[in-house]
Design a protein around this nucleic acid. Sequence first.
DNA 1: ATAACATATGCCGATATGGGAATATGTCAA
DNA 2: TTGACATATTCCCATATCGGCATATGTTAT
Lengths: 116, 116
Amino acid sequence: MARAATTSDAFNAIAEPQRRRILTLLKGRERPVNEVARALRITQPRASKHLRVLREVGLVRVRESGQQRVYTLDARGLRPIHAWTGGFEQFWNESFDKLDAYVRKLERQEQNDDHR
Amino acid sequence: MARAATTSDAFNAIAEPQRRRILTLLKGRERPVNEVARALRITQPRASKHLRVLREVGLVRVRESGQQRVYTLDARGLRPIHAWTGGFEQFWNESFDKLDAYVRKLERQEQNDDHR
DNA sequence: ATAACATATGCCGATATGGGAATATGTCAA
DNA sequence: TTGACATATTCCCATATCGGCATATGTTAT
């Protein structure tokens, strides 16, 4: 088995920086592919492919408008990620203390090394 | 260029389900590799590799304790992800309305198709 | 029909994966 | 020193990228 498919879930989908940029861009308003491509300075095929991934995990929706496909943000899929990371909130505050303890422990170890 | 390296940042690191499980596990308390492996029912090399990735993006730290390497959670790297997803909070609430509008629009289109 | 425009898709190349198995490296105890 | 134990690393395989380019598909206007 290789790496999990990028289309498997939102966690994988947003691992790609370009796709994060697309989502951020769509916060402003819905946009057709070409506009996305131009805004992010990527080729049209690239934009289409990223948008496809985002569509497949449900982070965007498409609406056909004449010959254009207008993509709209559907951020609900980000909620689980926000929730999951939120579960660590207490820890990233606490971490400073733990880091201090860790550093002190390291220093002690190094002292022991010196005395060997 | 291929996919972004999994070790490049926390976004990539947590795209892997096993690694998310490891981080969750370490919320309880620090643990040596073997314990992680046993708890998640993965092989020791696999645990080591995942822990390495997590270490390289700074989500865990290692402390040597005799012949064991004890891994500790350092959740600070998750904060940017929480913040980034949090920037979409207003949208995932709003989305229901937008989805309604979208569905209605779709239905209209289908009606048009029928009349063609 | 035909041309112009907007998107999507297929194919290629280079690369990075995650998993398993075997093995190297390092530490401690007798 | 030797052996047991804990971890890390390497090699191999199958797969899934992401990017560029060419091209298929679909829509609108003439």
